[in-house]
Amino acid sequence: MDYKNMEMRMVYAHTLNELIEENPNVLCLEADLAKASGTNPVVMEKHPDNFIDIGVAEANMISIAAGLANEGKVPFCASFTCFASRRVYDQVTISVAYANNNVKIVGTAPGITQGPNGGTHMDFLDLAIMRAMPNMHVYSPCDQFELRAVMRHMAVTKQPTYMQLVRSKVPVLREESCAFDPLKAVRLREGNDVTIVTTGYMVQFVMKASDELAKEGLGAEVLHYPSVKPFDGDALVESAKKTGAVVSVENQNILGGLGGVVCETLSERRPTRVKRLGVPDRFGEVATEKYLLDKHGFNVSHIVDAARALARSR
């Protein structure tokens, strides 16, 4: 299949079909957003017995998934990030994480990618609140191939997990054969002047920024964290020792998410100057991605400016 030219949600659906064919215990759960997740009709028609639509009842979906997981099923539950995280936070906390039931939660259309649905649906907190939950792993793959590797890992590990899923097609950044190890950051660029830490949807923008910095003679080391939790602190500390300057870039509120874990890690292990880029503690709104990136100060040129300023202030 031509995953490279596919929307991420279609990659999600087709990969889910593969996982179901390899292990019939894998299930696809939806809460009336199966078209938005890509699984209607791809999974629904091919594996109707493994496809369960719960209706507009996300809390019910998560607790049902916990019961299914308790019996050895591997339910993948998808909804918009706002509903897959904040709306069901108590169900995820108790029925899934505290009870250690093997549920896979997929938050679709993260952050600014929620566009036309606006402030009610645009969620900038899911990485932060999911990361703050014991027993929970939190992933954010950056492209089609990494998404497949992450999903394969999720299907074979007994581990409550939350994964962000960008729905649109994104530029391919990883090899088709790339592996996923939640304990390892992915160093996409080597550099000595500044470290840029990012995850998920923002990786493509950070790569462009590092190209721009290279034109200026500044070497940016790009660390991508497909797993925000567990967090590979060693990779960050090693890079910070080398560059002495760290910029974090995320499609999230700068409070508590990737920028949060970067600051926690460095302040304890290697105090380093940090600049966090993302949404500065604001709600979302109906807007294009470009408008939001520009408004909140984390477009490519903002990343370049922040990295340059930090690199020169060392």
Partner: peptide, 18 residues
Amino acid sequence: TAGSLGQGLSCACGIALA
């Protein structure tokens, strides 16, 4: 596991479906 009220019947549905 139960304690946060309202979740158990959903969990039981998942168990029954499994």
